[in-house]
Computed example of a mutant assay.
Amino acid sequence: MSAAPITSAPWVPRLIGAGHDPTDGPPVAILLSLYNGETFLNRQLDSFLDQNYQNWILLWRDDGSADASRAILRAFQANRGAGRCLEIDSESDTNIGIAASYWRLMDCAPAGHLIAFADQDDVWLPEKLSRGVAALKDVPANTPGMYFGRQILTDRQLKPIMISPPITNLRGIFSALAQNVATGCTVILNEKALSLLDAMRPPPPFILHDWAAYLAVSAAEGTVCVDEHPAILYRQHSGNAVGAPSSWLRRSYAAARRGPTAFMTIFRSNLVWLLRHRGLVTPLTTLRLEKLERGLAGTRRERLQLLRQFPDLTRSGFSEKLLFRLWFLFG
């Protein structure tokens, strides 16, 4: 798959085209946290307007930017995005960090809306929202539902590099504990998933909102919809908060750099967070998590037995799987 790179022509505003039906399907609240994003922000806003699914609103907050990010969004809110944008914490210039900023935005999501996480430096393809809405359409209202997918990785000029690797490690709560495969800028949640996250406050330390959502929906045995068709241009540059390593070697190297102490600290923290909310996950999941907690406090032999008993306690790829097993046993 290829995507046309953005040319060097000057950026010009795009207006919402005629013919869109703003009432077709459930409303979507796009959540966007800004931090010094002026370089790429207008392209992302263009791509919101270019969506073939137009029943959306934009909730945004600035997380203490020192550039023109807030001014750009306020101009968008007053003009091209008039009537469908709302600034959160408009009187604050406090930097609370990316995770807390998105949880704050989730607090303000209106009832009855799906929510879609957005990054300030990507570009959504026109079918981004429509694909997510369609995937979640048949999820029962009382079931937590989550959509996410692959991306077209690009350079900072939006020249395509490759499609992100296939999403393969989907084995329930244990694989979700070991690895986040839900890239935040592709995630859409239904109202039940958002309600679940709200009930599981305070949020877990150390991880971002996308991994927390993936853990919660997996623990509640909700519906996870994975899209193998990329629907965003995921810009890779030095300012990425996370980014997406484009090969198994780079992913393995990134995992190795974190080391066993950092990894197992996060792993244990996530486990504690889920067990703190036993009443919100399924009884079978609770029993499995409690057994995992006991095994982690035991000997290396007991931890090895856990790995044998629960093969879904793993990560994607041979090298990452090997690293995880070593860290689980000795970390």
Score class of each variant (00 low, 15 high):
F324D: 00
V242F: 14
T23S: 09
T168R: 02
Q77F: 09
G112Q: 00
T299C: 04
S2L: 14
W327K: 01
I161P: 12
T265P: 00
A109F: 11
L292H: 10
V224H: 08
S269H: 00
H237I: 03
D312R: 03
I72T: 12
K321C: 12
I163D: 12
T285N: 05
L296P: 09
Y234W: 10
D138N: 10
P27A: 05
P5Q: 10
R80K: 02
D46F: 00
R80A: 05
L194F: 12
L177F: 03
R43V: 10
T299I: 03
G112S: 04
G37P: 08
P144H: 02
G172H: 06
L289T: 04
A212H: 05
Q151H: 00
L208M: 11
L177D: 06
G145R: 01
L326D: 06
C108H: 15
M1R: 07
R301P: 14
S316G: 06
Q51V: 03
A75K: 15
G298K: 03
T261M: 07
M106C: 12
G64N: 07
A254I: 12
L105N: 09
F76P: 06
L197R: 00
N95K: 02
N180Y: 06
S316V: 01
T143V: 05
P5F: 07
L41N: 11
D210Q: 05
R300P: 14
L189T: 10
P311M: 11
T183K: 08
E38L: 08
M1A: 13
L296E: 11
A255K: 01
Q236C: 11
L31V: 11
R294A: 15
I72N: 02
Y253M: 13
W211K: 04
G97I: 10
R43C: 03
W327I: 00
I72H: 08
L289G: 02
A100T: 13
R257Q: 15
D210E: 02
L296V: 09
P110L: 04
L215N: 04
P166H: 07
